[in-house]
């Protein structure tokens, strides 16, 4: 498999003007171009990343981040880690459900627990908590109702 540096150069030549950065071995992609880059990664035969293994939402306190792990089942290669960042209030990230179907439930979970809105998702509603729940529990500033003892105590 090509190293992340080579993949970064390929994407920069194919989509001129995108600003990618490399952190460790993961690519940070700006959210505006994420949809097109995702289609490029899936459809080009020399990569053919056809298997989206995991979608995770993370809350760093200044920004929210979505982490994708991509594998290629045809070539038996991987993983490629991709991070997409967004702000905390109006967090909108393009959804990749039309490209990889496995993102459907995982993006709903990221919306439910971390509060990231995915534009273009066919059915974005809460999946693990009930419909009337009004907070996003996995954020760092979430406070529980009726706790017996403060959580940091131990």
């Amino acid at each position: 498999m090509k190293t992340p540096t080579e993949i970064k150069q390929d994407i920069e030549t194919k989509f001129p003007g995108t600003q990618l950065t490399l952190e460790g071995s993961s690519l940070v992609i700006p959210k505006e171009q994420w949809s097109e880059i995702a289609k490029f990664l899936k459809n080009t035969p020399e990569y053919s990343f056809d298997f989206l293994s995991s979608v995770t939402g993370v809350d760093y306190k200044e920004y929210l981040e979505v982490v994708y792990h991509l594998y290629s089942m045809e070539k038996k290669e991987g993983p490629l880690t991709i991070k997409v960042r967004t702000d905390c209030e109006q967090s909108l990230v393009p959804s990749v459900t039309p490209i990889w179907r496995s993102a459907e439930f995982q993006e709903r979970e990221a919306y439910d627990l971390v509060g990231i809105h995915f534009t273009g998702h066919p059915d974005l509603r809460r999946i693990l908590m009930w419909e009337g729940f009004q907070h996003h529990p996995l954020r760092k500033d979430y406070v529980q109702d009726e706790q017996d003892r403060p959580v940091e105590q131990f």
Partner: peptide, 26 residues
Amino acid sequence: GFYLVSDGTTKPYRYHVRSSSFINLT
């Protein structure tokens, strides 16, 4: 799969479980 983010302390900063039963239900 387990996705772990560490910030150098004794506790994980983010801990995510990628479970097959959840995704196979799609």
